[in-house]
Amino acid sequence: MSFERPSLQELITRVQSDAESRLGKKAMRWTLVPVLSRVIAGVSHSLHGLIAFTIRQIFSSTAEGAYLERRASEYGIYRKQAASAVGSVTFSGDGHVPAGTQLQSGDDMIYLTTTDIDEDKVAKIRAAKPGAAGNADAGMELTLVSPIAGIMSTAVAGELTGGADAEDDESLRERLLQRQKNPPKAGTKADYVAWALSVAGVTRAWCYPQELGQGHVTVRFMTDGMTENGIPNETMVKRVTEYIESMMPVTCILHVEAPIPKPLDVTIDLLPDDIAVKAKIESAIESVVMSESKPGGPILRTSLDRAISGVNEVLSYRIISPIDDVGTTTGEIYVPGTVSWV
């Protein structure tokens, strides 16, 4: 029988009833029994709370925070720490910019040069504070925090990528449960998936043994929420490659690739013709595509039906296209496309 924490009122009633049974009579309101019953019940309620909390920390499926980290560490799994965005910046002028120079963006993010300026006036940079907030598209203007003789105060950054937030409890728990269900076996499919998921920013991963021949292992992964449509960039591919190479058997030939995005366009005849309802349907379809897509795998027509019919405001609908299940070729993965209405 599972443990159920009694409410404070239940404990007060229990303690007072126990006291009255020993007194052999009902306690009057002006006696000490009701007062002491509330005091004792308050202490007991706190202890019951501690018991309930402790029970949650015993199991991987309910542990949280530092307790979840401790359980995961017993299997050699650790919370993925935040990673800093990296890229390059181009300066103007004839001065020298040393490594360690600080630059600031319009939203007050600080970046540091990690190399001296080269002959092309370019230097490598990284975000001073780890996290996804440091990522940015190419063309962002950065301003020198301290002036440098001969260098214009404004510089232009290239694409800044690779920034990732620290792993949350649910992601860590999912990796821990996967490890418990799939113990390491010196290089199985599950091992390669687990190694890829251990890299900060990686949200989904797949392994394809011998796809390119005997002894070859292909790993594909996604970085949902960090890059456009979750398709990994070169920085992330390099990070995952380096990590897996440090863990994998030396006899294998590793190929880490970003899946090729294939937009899934959907055309729907909908009733009612309402903007808010359409927005909910688009969000539902996007969720289905993100949860069910995998490299070389299909998106089922029934999944699209389930997504649309799950929107309560829909009175009637008809999917014009696709007319059936849709598939992908090797390496391709479906990403959310355009939803059209007729």
Rank of each mutant, 00 (worst) to 15 (best):
E4D: 05
E4S: 11
S7W: 04
E10G: 13
I12R: 15
I12N: 12
T13Y: 07
Q16C: 02
Q16N: 04
D18T: 06
R29T: 15
V35E: 06
L36G: 14
V39N: 10
L47C: 13
G49K: 00
F53Q: 12
T54K: 07
R56H: 11
I58T: 12
I58H: 11
I58E: 10
S60F: 02
T62L: 05
A63D: 00
E64A: 13
G65F: 09
Y67G: 08
R70K: 12
R71S: 09
A72C: 04
S73K: 02
I77L: 12
Y78F: 13
R79Y: 01
Q81A: 13
V89C: 06
T90V: 10
S92G: 01
G93M: 14
G95M: 14
P98Y: 11
T101Y: 05
S105M: 05
G106T: 14
Y111R: 12
I117Q: 06
V122S: 04
K124C: 03
A127P: 02
G134L: 05
N135G: 11
M140A: 14
E141R: 14
T143M: 06
I148L: 15
I151S: 00
M152K: 14
E159Q: 13
E159H: 12
G162V: 11
G162A: 05
G163R: 10
A166I: 08
E167A: 01
D168M: 04
D169K: 01
E174D: 10
L177I: 15
N182L: 12
P184M: 09
K189E: 11
D191I: 00
W195T: 02
A196M: 13
S198H: 06
T203G: 12
T203F: 08
G213S: 06
G215N: 10
H216Q: 11
T218Q: 07
V219M: 01
F221G: 03
D224N: 12
G225H: 13
T227P: 00
E228I: 13
N229M: 09
N229P: 02
I231L: 02
E234N: 11
M236K: 10
R239A: 11
R239H: 10
V240Q: 02
E242M: 11
Y243H: 15
Y243P: 08
Y243N: 09
I244A: 10
S246K: 06
M247K: 15
M247R: 15
M248T: 07
P249E: 08
V250P: 03
T251S: 14
L254I: 09
H255I: 07
E257P: 02
A258I: 03
I260D: 04
P261L: 05
K262P: 08
D265R: 06
D265N: 15
I268P: 00
I268V: 09
P272K: 10
A276W: 00
I281C: 00
I285N: 05
E286H: 07
G296A: 05
I299G: 04
I299N: 05
T302N: 09
T302L: 11
L304R: 03
R306L: 09
A307C: 03
I308C: 04
S309N: 08
G310L: 01
G310V: 01
N312F: 10
E313A: 15
R318D: 05
I319C: 00
D324I: 00
D325Y: 02
V326G: 05
G327E: 06
E332Q: 12
Y334H: 14
P336A: 06
V339Y: 04
V339P: 02
S340I: 00
S340H: 01
W341L: 07
